[in-house]
Simulated assay, not measured.
Amino acid sequence: MDKTFSTLEQRSNSSFGYWNRAVADTYFDMHLSYQNSEHFNGVLEAWDLSVVQLSCMTSDGAIYKRVQKDCSTNERQVLVTLPVQSEIEFSQLGRTTRCDPGQFLLELSEEPFVFGHSRHNEMWVLKIPVSSLRARIGEPKRFCARSYDAQEGVGGLLGDYFRLTMRHREMAYDANVRALMGAHFVDLLALSLQGHPDALQSSQSAVRDAHLARIEEYVRKNLCDPDLAPDSIAQACGISLRYLHLLFKDAEASVCQWIREKRLQSAYEMLQKAAPQTSIAQIAYAVGFSDHAQFSNAFRKKFGQAPSELRAPKMARGAGRVPVAGIEIASGAISRTHH
């Protein structure tokens, strides 16, 4: 494990402050109140899986509150929480839901929320950058504060993968295996959300979300096309170009900017998993960049390092890598290799 926090090693009167710091260090700043104001026990373990962080929180009852002044949009994160022992209550974006063992829910870091459980509980939590999830399902806000099934269908596969990974958490896997495990988590989460009836619900319009879901699917399947553009997307999705731009009016980026973000995020994840013999140029072409220099410049601007710098530690480790057959977007949507 990469981090371990335990109140068992703390004096009783210092366990509350210690747990506050442990939660902030693992997730982000929150205000906590406790079911028992005199005594609290908790253990928090966390593992780095490259793009995502997996953690196991076992503790007495508590309420976790994220207030507006602590919220930031600079590093947007999503927490995916799966309770194991007892139910949790969660409120965000004007919605309140109860999540029982066998279910999971999503929490946004940049919006205030209240999260709590009154009884002793064990919870498994994924911390995922919004950019990684948005590349597959679009804006995740529409999926937050809802309970999803972790026992049947693709959600059941996600729940099973949680359990499988927890059984292997003491194994000293190298960075390549961890990156692959993290990508599997994101893929299974995205697939389970896409197949859920709530996928087409939002606070705005089911029709609008239906169009966005169709646009997202088309772009994922055609991300390797360097000529992918608003006009071809609109035509393929049966809407006007004007309406396409209107759909993105309230988004954080224009259509073209959104496509570029998806290309760069997919490239980042592919660099984490690709076999050593796969060149950076191949990865750039696989996500639709026809100019290697342009790709490298855009990648450095977004991630603060060149593709070769991200690749360097992996190349230096030599053998023992997890091979990736061909060049694939992590979601499996694109499987063509460009030469």
Rank of each mutant, 00 (worst) to 15 (best):
A306T: 14
V130G: 03
E139A: 13
S279A: 10
V177K: 04
A312G: 09
E38T: 08
S331W: 01
I137K: 04
S33D: 07
A293M: 05
A190H: 02
N36K: 06
F185L: 09
M57N: 01
I280F: 01
I88C: 02
T73G: 10
M30C: 13
H339W: 09
S118L: 03
R98Y: 06
W258H: 14
F115G: 00
K249V: 09
S131G: 05
L49M: 14
S118P: 01
K69M: 11
C71P: 06
G102M: 07
R321D: 07
D174W: 02
Y173T: 11
N176G: 15
I280A: 01
C237F: 04
V219W: 00
Y148F: 15
E170G: 06
C99D: 00
A135G: 14
G326S: 10
E252R: 09
A199Q: 09
M30V: 10
N297C: 06
R134G: 00
S72C: 12
D225P: 03
E75P: 02
A22P: 11
G182I: 04
G318D: 09
G42T: 00
C144V: 14
A150I: 11
A206P: 07
G159Y: 05
G320R: 05
I283H: 04
S37R: 13
L193W: 04
A319T: 14
I283C: 08
S147C: 12
Q272V: 02
D70I: 02
S55G: 09
C256I: 11
Q305E: 15
R167F: 08
D2M: 08
V287G: 03
S205D: 14
A210L: 14
L49F: 15
L180T: 13
H339Y: 12
S55V: 07
S254C: 10
R242T: 15
F299S: 03
D198L: 08
D291T: 08
I239S: 05
Q257P: 02
L180H: 14
V154C: 10
R317H: 11
A135T: 10
D198P: 00
D187I: 03
M315V: 12
